[in-house]
Write a protein that binds this DNA or RNA. Structure first.
Lengths: 106, 106
DNA sequence: CTCCTATTTGGCAATATCGCCAAATCGCCA
DNA sequence: TGGCGATTTGGCGATATTGCCAAATAGGAG
């Protein structure tokens, strides 16, 4: 594998890794509906604010979400809505796996 | 976040995590062209066979690739081609990030 | 049966990720 | 200016991931 391919795949993996966490998936799905501030997301997730803030910064640095200060709050919004389409493939995989499981039992 | 959502997102994250690694992305992209045995993939990747084998088993357990023994080799193939569409969104994100970088420099 | 090749598994050290607490910032308002 | 609510950052222990080596396993050829 040459260096160029390596770098390309590193960049790709970094973006995908940013989404490879249940809490961050929740954030993306929630922001897909409409923007939310950190305090709202924290309440929905039920974790420490600092934890949520770090998850948000991971998604922001990956370029998947965007932040905007307004008043005393920071509002986050989904910058790359195409990731939602990305997820439908994942659901397909999950469904296929479940069907495979069924076949073994029968 | 209720338990049902939690479980759903855990399953989703597990699939995505399986792809969140440069070597595993390389494997998926390579298998998208056509099937390959472990030894071929190992030669292309340039890592230890055991390392490649473990990456393959991670992708297999996620249900993304399939294996088939034939002769003395094990051939792997892409079971879920929709992940390739999934990747095009990631490329879009990378391109958008690069464009954002440019704007800062200018 | 024995050797040889292909692959998987066990184990280990290095590294990265996660979630919480505490502390630092930042803007706003009295 | 001082305090307050919202958010981010630093740091730490716990846990997970990664890649290599060595060893186990599986199948075919002689």
């Amino acid at each position: 594998m040459d260096t160029k391919t390596q770098n390309r795949l590193d960049a790709k993996a970094r973006i995908i890794k940013a989404m490879a966490h249940p809490t961050r998936l929740f954030i993306v799905e929630t922001l897909a509906k409409h923007e939310h501030c950190v305090c709202e997301l924290t309440a929905l997730i039920g974790a420490d604010v600092s934890t949520v803030s770090k998850h948000l910064s991971i998604l922001r640095e990956a370029g998947i979400i965007d932040d905007e200060k307004r008043g005393s709050s920071v509002y986050y919004q989904l910058k790359m809505p195409c990731v939602m389409g990305f997820f439908s493939c994942v659901d397909t995989v999950i469904k296929a796996n479940a069907q495979g499981q069924l076949k073994c039992v029968r």
